[in-house]
């Protein structure tokens, strides 16, 4: 089943850094002797600002760092954590690698699919949740585990996951 993402897919043609992050952008660039090194930090700032990376955000990063647009696009697409499509308010990233799998990650993921009515990479119709299988999160001793946005949740089972979902409005 397929759900349309709720966030605007009509990405703006041009973006500028909001006043609130301009100092952070300058600070990030100042950490490196070569401007290009700030490409990941700036992509992170952009993703925090707009929730995902519309093409205009990557163009903004390219302009800021005096890089060609495809170079920034090439970097952004190499890494898995940059959202090149809009995601729900809560991005559920369930670790499926061996240690978590041994402890029940597969069963947990099926539970989430069933409960939310969506599959891997899909977003609920109300835009609340995006569900994704991910590789090892380095929380193997607390498997099965998941990351929601940037927060870790460990030692999960169906009951605990249900309680977490309740809190994520």
């Amino acid at each position: 089943m397929s759900h349309a993402p709720v966030m605007p897919v009509e990405a703006p043609a041009v973006l500028e850094w909001p006043e609130a992050v301009k100092a952070e952008v300058a600070e990030a660039i100042s950490h490196y002797p070569v401007k290009r090194s700030a490409v990941l930090p700036l992509l992170w700032i952009a993703q925090r600002t707009w929730g995902w990376l519309p093409p205009a955000a990557m163009q903004l990063v390219a302009r800021t760092l005096e890089l060609n647009e495809p170079e920034v696009f090439g970097v952004a697409t190499f890494y898995t954590m940059f959202n090149l499509q809009p995601v729900g308010r809560h991005h559920l990233q369930v670790c499926m690698t061996l240690s978590c799998s041994l402890m029940g990650a597969d069963r947990l993921f099926k539970h989430l699919e069933h409960k939310l009515g969506i599959g891997h990479g899909e977003t609920t119709a109300d835009g609340r949740f995006t569900l994704r299988r991910v590789e090892c999160l380095a929380a193997c001793g607390g498997g099965p585990c998941m990351q929601v946005g940037l927060d870790y949740y460990e030692d999960l089972d169906e009951t605990k996951v249900d309680a977490i979902l309740e809190k994520l409005k």
């Binding site: 070569v34 290009r36 090194s37 700030a38 890494y79 898995t80 954590m81 940059f82 090892c136």
Partner: peptide, 19 residues
Amino acid sequence: GAGAYICGEETALLSSLEG
């Protein structure tokens, strides 16, 4: 970083750090 196992390899890490 931004999600890539390979960046634990030291030369890939340096490429990533260089942007």
